[in-house]
Amino acid sequence: MKKILVICMYDSIHSARWLAQFKDTDYEFLLFPSSPHRRIRPELKALLGNSGAASYNLFPLSRLFGLPFWIADKFFGNLIRGSLVRIAAKTFRPDLVHALELQNAGYISLQAFGDRSRPFKLMVTNWGSDIFWFQQFPQHLAKLKQLLKIADYYSAECSRDVALAKRLGFVGKAMPVIPNAGGFGQQELEQALRPSDARSKIAIKGYQGWVGRAVTALEAIESISGSLSDYELVIYSANLKTIRYAREVEKRTGLRFTIYPKGAMSHRQVLELFAESKIYIGLSESDGISTSLLEAMAMGAIPVQTATACCDEWFTSTGVAIHQIEPGIVAAGILRALELSEDPMNATVNRETIRRKANASEVSKIARTFYEL
């Protein structure tokens, strides 16, 4: 039985979905926390123990020390968790250590192993902004170069990020480019797409802060409010700043917003929102593949997405890529997307792109080759 030590975020759906792809294999997984989790994601918790043929276990006491050790390591440069990862590797004796994400799991791996000789291989996975965004900061750039130097394998969900890793000095094996969170099942891909005249909503990702730019989307919407009065504007995963700004726009324009805070909608509800929406708007200064972008394409909502989400690898003329996050440019993109939504072929082409590049069965087959090294 092959042993895999996975350093990952216990509270991340991406971690859970990645690991779930291996539950009917004969791998033995030991999981080590990379972030200050307050809880273990239910989908990950469901895997623990013998889940099918594979076994998934947490590093001892790791349910308890995620937050305090994360705080301590802010002062000690990942020294504590790096030492614990070395202990985990020494006792578990893995064939492979896999760091899921770079700024937490990757940097812990760098502290743990550095240039030390080791009997196992190291794989690192870029989750999106890990290189694209953080390379602009000198301290992160230095760490990224060091980490990529010691990594044997590297995976990313954008070809853009594979090129960036090589530019920063990675000389190991690049794994196939696939969505990190797995793919879409037959239930989603076989669901009939609603025609445009049966779609009455506009979906807006509500992140504002760090790299999310939902307020700019709302500024754009306000500037063309007269063209959007017939739509229900649905903001999901909204934080407080987005909610407050949306309420102000409502008062000034008379537009109707339905708002769901972050975590208020299930995955199934988000998919249903996209199935009922003409367009989806997602703005971010940095991203890998935006999962929301893929979900919108799968369910027939025409995307208005910042180009930072590797849009050119997923659509050309069947969506709108935003290259400058400015209200006027976003407003023009929204109006263009509404035009595109009137041609059913655009939604059909996007669905077929997802079926070809992001169906769960094919993505899982490729993912399983990652550990057959």
Rank of each mutant, 00 (worst) to 15 (best):
S35E: 11
S35I: 01
S35L: 05
P36K: 07
H37N: 14
H37E: 06
H37F: 09
R38M: 10
R39V: 09
R39F: 15
R39A: 13
R41Y: 13
P42Y: 07
E43S: 11
E43F: 00
L44G: 03
L44C: 04
L44R: 03
K45C: 00
K45W: 03
L47R: 04
L47W: 04
L47I: 07
G49I: 07
G49W: 07
N50K: 15
S51R: 01
G52M: 06
A53L: 11
A54G: 02
S55Q: 11
S55G: 11
S55R: 15
S55W: 06
Y56R: 03
Y56I: 06
N57D: 13
L58Q: 08
P60W: 07
L61Q: 08
S62M: 02
R63I: 04
R63P: 00
R63Q: 12
L64W: 13
G66S: 14
L67T: 14
F69D: 02
F69P: 00
F69W: 09
W70S: 08
W70Q: 02
I71A: 11
I71E: 06
A72I: 14
D73S: 09
K74A: 09
F75G: 01
F76H: 04
F76M: 13
G77D: 11
G77F: 06
N78L: 00
L79T: 05
L79D: 10
I80E: 01
R81C: 03
G82C: 08
G82F: 03
L84G: 06
V85I: 14
V85F: 08
R86G: 09
I87Q: 11
I87L: 15
A88K: 08
A89W: 05
A89N: 08
K90E: 13
T91R: 13
F92V: 08
F92T: 10
R93N: 12
D95G: 14
D95P: 09
V97C: 12
V97R: 10
A99S: 13
A99K: 01
A99Q: 02
E101Y: 14
E101I: 01
L102A: 02
L102Y: 04
Q103M: 13
Q103R: 14
Q103W: 10
Q103L: 14
A105E: 07
G106I: 07
Y107L: 13
Y107F: 15
I108W: 09
S109A: 15
S109I: 01
L110T: 03
L110K: 06
